[in-house]
Design a binder for these strands. Structure first.
Lengths: 340, 340
DNA sequence: CTGAAAGCGCTTACAG
DNA sequence: CTGAAAGCGCTTACAG
C-alpha cells in the first residue's frame, strides 16, 4: 500500500481496471462482468475498504446519511425517538447526522441546510415548534419527515410532507370511557404547557370525550406542568374544592406522579377515593401501578425512518404520507372504581 | 442567484474577490483586510450560506463532525450519554455522526473507519466490548475517547487513549459503609452480567468493601440480571435461607426493583426487615425512595466530549487522559436501620 | 493582503 | 462491458 489511504484509484490499479469500474462495483451497478466484479470485491473485503463519504457526497450521490434534527434531548423523548430511528437506519446500513437546536431560528436554519441537500439523503425533524410552518418548503427540497408534529394545513408546501403523530383523540376517549365506566363523574384534566400541540389536543379531546357522557362534569386545570407544580396545584385544588374530584387525568406521568404524591401527603386513598391516570407510560408508571396511555416513542422513530425511506427508495414519490399511531391504554391499579 | 446552490465561487463573484479569500473569511483566518472580510461576511449572512461539508471534508480540513459509536441504544445508557455529548458538541457548533453496532466486528470496523480519518474530526466510543483491545491503535489515528470503558493496559497503543470511567470502588465502599453503619451484617450482592466490566468491578469491590468490616458476612448471587430474574432469584434466596439477609445490594435499580417487588410479594417490610440498594438512580428510584448510587450518565458524555476537544484543539497533544467520575450515594428510605 | 492552480475521492455522462 | 475526462465545493501551498 502506498502512504495515502486506499481510494478508488489505488483499488483500480490493484484490480487491473479503472476507477469507473470500481465505482460501478461499489454501487452494485449491473453492467460489470462477473470476473471483474469478483476481483474488485475481493480487494474491497481484503482491505476493509469504505468509500469516502466526502468524495461520494460531493458528486451529489446518496451517502446513506440521514439527518436528525431535534429541539433538545432534555426530555428523554428525543432520545427514545432516536432509538427507533437508529434501529431502522442501522438496518439499512445508514448513518445518522444529528443536530439539536433549542432555538427555533437555529432549528429552521438547520432544517434548511438539510433540505437544501449536499449533506444528507433526507431528514427527520423531531417535534419542531409550530413557528416552522411559517416558512416554506421548497420544490427541490430533499425528503423530510416530521415526527411528533403535523403540518396545520397544506400551505407553503407542507401538505406533501410526511408525518408521524399520535392519536390523542382515540386515546383520550379510551381514558375517559374507562374512568366513567369505573364510576367517575367529576373529571379534572391537568393539562400540559399551552404551547405544546399534544397538550392542546388532549385538553380539547378531554372535553369532547367527557361531553359524550351524560352527567359527567369535566374541568381543566392549567399550570400543573411538572411534577412539582402538579403536587402544589393538586393540593390547592383539594383545599379549594373541599376534596378531590372522582378522577385526575394528568397530561403525563410526571404530572400524575406529583398528583399521587399530593394525595399521599393528604392521606387520600388511590383509587379508593380518587382515580389518577397518566400519559406516556414511563418506567415508574408500571412500578407505581399507574393507569396510563402508552406513548410508543420508539415506534414513532421507526415509523418516521420508514416513511423517509419510502420516499428515498422511490425518487418519483414527491409526497409523504401522514401516519397516526394508536396508543394503548394500560389499565393498572390507580383507576379502580371509587368507593364513596 | 444562479440555478446551482451557492458556493465559494458564487460568493466570491458577489463579493468581487476570489474563492481563496472567501475561504479565508470562512475559516476566520487573520490575513484578510477588514473591508473585504466585512463584505464577505455580509453576504454569508444575507444568503444564510453554509460551506459544504463534503467539499471541506475532502480536503482533509476539520468538518466539525464528531463520531459517536455505540453498541446499541436499548439500555437507555447510550441515550443518556449521548445527551451529554450533544450538549458539549452543540456548544462548539459541531455535529454528531452516530453509528451503532451491536456486533463487535462491526463495531471495530466502524471504529477503524472513524480512526482512519476522512470522515470525522474525532470519535467517542461508548462502552465497547473488551474484545476491542485485541486490536491496535495506529499512530496516525484521529483522536478517539473511550466512554464507560478503560483500556486494560498500555499495550497496542491503547495507553494514549483518553477515557471516562466511573469510580465503582469508592461508590461501593460508600454503599457498604452506609449499610454497615445502619446495622446490617449479612450483605448479599446481586451482581450484573459477568461480561460487563462494571459488573466485575462492583462485585470485586463489594467483597473488598465488606472485608474491611469485622463481623460482616458478604455473599454474591449471580444470575439476577434483570428485574424479572431478580424477582425470581430474590424469592428463591429467601426460601433457601429462611429469610432475607440484612441487605440486598443490587447491581442496578432495575434489579433492585425486582427485589423490592419480591419482598413486597412476601410481605417483608423494607427497610424494617431488610435494606435494599440500587445503582444508577433512574427516575423510579426517587419515586420508590430507593437508596442508590447516582450514575452521572450525562456528565460522562460531557466529559468524553471535553476530553476529545482537548485533543482536537491542540493537535500536538497526542495523548488523552483518563477521567474517573465520582458517583454520589443517594440515601433514601429503603436503607434504614433494620429492626430485628 | 490577494488570487490562480492543484488536488482531495468520488460519480456521472460520454465514447467506444 | 470498460475507460478517459469532467466536475462536485472546498482548502492548501505557492507566487505575487
Amino acid at each position: 500500500m502506498s502512504g495515502k489511504s486506499l481510494n478508488v484509484i489505488e483499488l483500480a490499479k490493484l484490480a487491473h481496471t479503472s476507477k469507473s469500474t470500481v465505482s460501478r462495483v461499489l454501487r452494485n451497478e449491473p453492467d460489470v462482468s462477473p470476473k471483474t466484479r469478483a476481483r474488485v470485491q475481493r480487494l474491497i473485503r481484503k482491505y476493509d475498504y469504505h468509500p469516502s463519504l466526502f468524495g461520494r457526497g460531493l458528486t451529489g450521490a446518496s451517502t446513506g446519511l440521514i439527518g436528525v434534527l431535534g429541539r433538545w434531548m432534555e426530555s428523554g423523548f428525543a432520545a427514545e425517538v432516536l432509538r427507533g430511528i437508529v434501529a431502522e437506519v442501522e438496518r439499512r446500513g445508514g448513518h445518522l447526522l444529528c443536530s439539536f437546536a433549542p432555538n427555533i431560528d437555529d432549528y429552521v436554519s438547520m432544517w434548511r441546510k438539510f433540505a437544501a441537500g449536499g449533506q444528507v439523503d433526507g431528514a427527520i425533524l423531531i417535534a419542531p415548534a409550530n413557528e416552522i410552518f411559517a416558512h416554506s418548503v421548497k420544490p427541490g427540497d430533499r425528503p423530510v419527515v416530521l415526527c411528533a408534529c403535523k403540518p396545520p394545513d397544506e400551505k407553503r408546501g407542507w401538505g406533501k410532507i410526511g408525518s408521524v403523530t399520535i392519536d390523542n383523540r382515540t386515546a383520550m376517549n379510551d381514558v375517559v370511557d374507562h374512568l366513567v365506566g369505573a364510576g367517575c363523574r367529576r373529571l379534572v384534566h391537568l393539562s400540559g404547557a399551552p404551547d405544546i400541540l399534544d397538550a392542546q389536543e388532549r385538553r380539547r379531546f378531554f372535553m369532547k370525550a367527557a361531553a359524550r357522557h351524560r352527567g359527567v362534569k369535566a374541568d381543566v386545570v392549567q399550570g400543573a406542568w411538572t411534577r412539582e407544580l402538579a403536587y402544589t396545584i393538586a393540593l390547592e385544588y383539594i383545599n379549594t374544592h373541599g376534596g378531590p374530584p372522582d378522577a385526575f387525568v394528568a397530561f403525563n406521568d410526571s404530572v400524575a406522579l406529583g398528583v399521587l404524591e399530593a394525595l399521599q401527603a393528604r392521606g387520600i386513598p388511590v383509587p379508593g377515593k380518587v382515580a389518577v391516570t397518566g400519559w406516556d407510560d414511563i418506567l415508574f408508571a408500571s412500578y407505581a401501578g399507574l393507569t396510563t396511555i402508552h406513548l410508543p416513542m420508539i415506534r414513532m422513530g421507526e415509523e418516521a425512518a420508514r416513511l423517509l425511506y419510502e420516499q428515498l427508495d422511490d425518487p418519483r414519490r414527491k409526497v409523504g404520507r401522514p401516519v397516526l399511531l394508536k396508543m394503548p391504554l394500560k389499565v393498572r391499579s390507580t383507576s379502580g372504581r371509587p368507593r364513596k
